[in-house]
């Protein structure tokens, strides 16, 4: 079982490395979107500081939508997904490995990038660790929800426009807890509660989400 997991993870990471621009684009998108906000608002440091947390989280959420369609698309189009399904490898493990690979290439860069951009929004440095921790707990949930959206639309020729509609409402709890943790940390208040809730969401998503993803992929392959 672990072999299967590692093989798929290794393969997907290699593929991602060769098509690195596909995963770099969302990060660039994130930087551009967050820098558009100061332009759109009347110049004022205080206002930016107030809305900064929200801008960062929503920006991260939107940018993650960009890389999401490719999550199963390539494997689906070239037939390798069908081969994997037919192979004796347990399909659930394969799905988990693919989600894990997606998290490594799209979640981890966000954990690093968002706190850096946060500095430009005058987020106090003490809050940066909390922001990174919140992202560390939130991005697995995000990857699972993205995978659900990608799997549901995998057999559609143009699923891209619809995925956001499916995934974003489901992301709302994560957004609530993530922004609150960051805001509380910025005000020097205890942040344990939202972080625990984020962790609970992650455990929940990681344990049940792959079932939905596997079921949706099976239907898509029929």
């Amino acid at each position: 079982m672990l072999d299967v997991f590692l093989t798929i993870l290794n393969r997907d990471l290699k593929l991602a490395y060769r098509r690195w621009s596909e995963f770099a684009n969302p990060l660039l998108f994130f930087v551009i979107v967050t820098s558009l906000f100061p332009l759109a608002l009347s110049p004022g440091q205080a206002l930016l500081q107030t809305i900064g947390t929200g801008v960062l989280w929503v920006g991260a959420l939107l940018s993650s939508l960009l890389a999401l369609e490719g999550l199963f698309r390539g494997d689906f189009d070239d037939g390798s997904m069908e081969q994997i399904l037919l192979s004796p490898a347990p399909f659930g493990i394969v799905v988990i490995a693919k989600i894990a690979a997606h998290w490594v290439v799209s979640g981890i860069p966000l954990i690093v990038l968002v706190p850096v951009v946060a500095l430009s929004f005058q987020l106090p440095t003490e809050a940066l660790a909390t922001l990174a921790a919140a992202l560390l707990l939130a991005t697995p949930t995000l990857s699972v929800l993205s995978a659900i959206g990608a799997a549901l639309t995998v057999s559609l020729k143009s699923g891209g426009s619809i995925i956001g509609l499916l995934v974003l409402p489901l992301c709302s709890p994560m957004l609530i807890f993530g922004t609150r943790a960051t805001d509380l940390a910025a005000n020097g208040e205890p942040v344990a509660a939202p972080l625990y809730l984020l962790a609970a969401l992650a455990v929940f998503a990681v344990s049940l989400g792959p079932l939905a993803v596997a079921a949706a992929l099976r239907v898509g392959l029929e």
Partner: peptide, 26 residues
């Protein structure tokens, strides 16, 4: 296919409904 795929979304949605409910209250 529409039936089966949307069924999965429906179930995922209903599992999330209480989570969304309590998170907006919180």
């Amino acid at each position: 296919k529409a039936d089966r795929v949307s069924a999965i979304l429906g179930v995922v949605g209903v599992v999330n409904v209480p989570i969304i409910h309590y998170s907006v209250i919180w």
